[in-house]
Simulated assay, not measured.
Amino acid sequence: MALDDLPDEHEQSEKVLDWLRNNAFGLIGGLVLGLSIIGGWKWWQNHAHQQRLQVAEEFRGVQEGIEAGELEQATSRAAGLKNNVYAALAALDIAKAQVDAGDRDAAIATLRGVGSREPAIDAVVRQRLARLLIDAGNADEAVALLSAADDAASLETRGDARFALGEGDAARDDYSAALRQLDVAAPQRQLLELKLAEVGGQPEASEAQS
């Protein structure tokens, strides 16, 4: 290519300007879209953070009400918790305070109202509710509540319910299943072994040596 064929600086500038004119709308649109996405994401992060702070503040208010013995106030504040996990934890604390105050029926009602979608929390709620139902003479309902139990504490509680119903064989099965999940050094193991012995069972050899 001859030197005369090379575009001079003016021609190059004109080509760049033409390209910018033809693509300016797309460039600006892309820039605006990018800035909108970034701004929207930051807004959402800030909004979510503010919501978490608000829920934590409401939960702290529930705790303060319980500590002050104002259970009605604590229950009222807990009803406003929109966060599923915090609402379930608040209900557990309120139910414990109600039991400590001698109001078992209120505690049962509180735990019945928990709608946790967290498996771990749901298991604790069911177990505590089942124990209260056994104490209230509704062991059959406790058994139904724990029909799908698979953790040691819930299996033990279901065994207690079946023992209360006079179902020794079924209670023995639950106690044995619970023992199989416990380490030999588990603090609750000794009591569970006593319960098993009371219904005519004994730890399997593998359990006793685990």
Rank of each mutant, 00 (worst) to 15 (best):
L89F: 06
V99E: 10
L129T: 07
A88H: 05
A123T: 05
S116F: 07
P119E: 00
K96R: 14
R112H: 15
A101T: 13
V85Q: 07
T110I: 12
T110E: 14
K96P: 00
I108F: 11
D100C: 10
R104V: 15
A88W: 04
R117K: 08
Q127N: 15
I121F: 01
K96G: 09
V85E: 03
Q127M: 10
Q127K: 13
Q98K: 11
R128G: 00
R104P: 12
A123R: 07
P119Y: 02
A97P: 11
G115Y: 07
P119L: 02
A130T: 14
L111M: 10
Y86H: 05
S116T: 04
D93P: 10
A97S: 13
R112C: 06
G102A: 09
R128F: 06
A97L: 11
L111H: 07
I94G: 07
L92R: 03
T110L: 09
V125F: 04
G115N: 14
V124S: 06
G115L: 05
V85G: 00
Q127V: 10
R117T: 06
A106M: 11
L129D: 04
S116A: 01
A123W: 01
L129R: 06
A97I: 07
L129E: 03
V99S: 01
V125A: 04
G113R: 10
A101R: 12
L111F: 15
A95K: 01
A123Y: 00
L92D: 03
D103N: 13
A120G: 07
A101W: 11
A95T: 08
A123K: 06
P119K: 05
L129A: 05
S116Q: 00
D105E: 15
A87Y: 05
G102P: 13
A95D: 01
A88K: 00
L129G: 08
Y86L: 04
D122A: 13
D103K: 13
D93H: 14
E118P: 02
A97D: 10
D100S: 14
D122V: 04
N84L: 02
A106S: 15
D105I: 07
V99F: 05
G113C: 05
E118Q: 13
R112V: 03
K96S: 11
D100Y: 08
R128V: 07
L89K: 00
R117I: 03
D93N: 15
L129M: 14
E118A: 04
G113Y: 05
A107D: 09
I94H: 06
A130E: 14
D93F: 09
A123F: 00
L111K: 08
A120C: 07
A91W: 02
R117N: 02
A87K: 11
V114D: 00
D93R: 15
D100L: 14
V85L: 02
G102V: 13
R126S: 04
A130I: 13
V125M: 03
A87Q: 08
V114W: 02
V85Y: 00
R126E: 04
V85S: 01
L89D: 05
I108E: 11
R128N: 09
D122P: 03
Q127R: 15
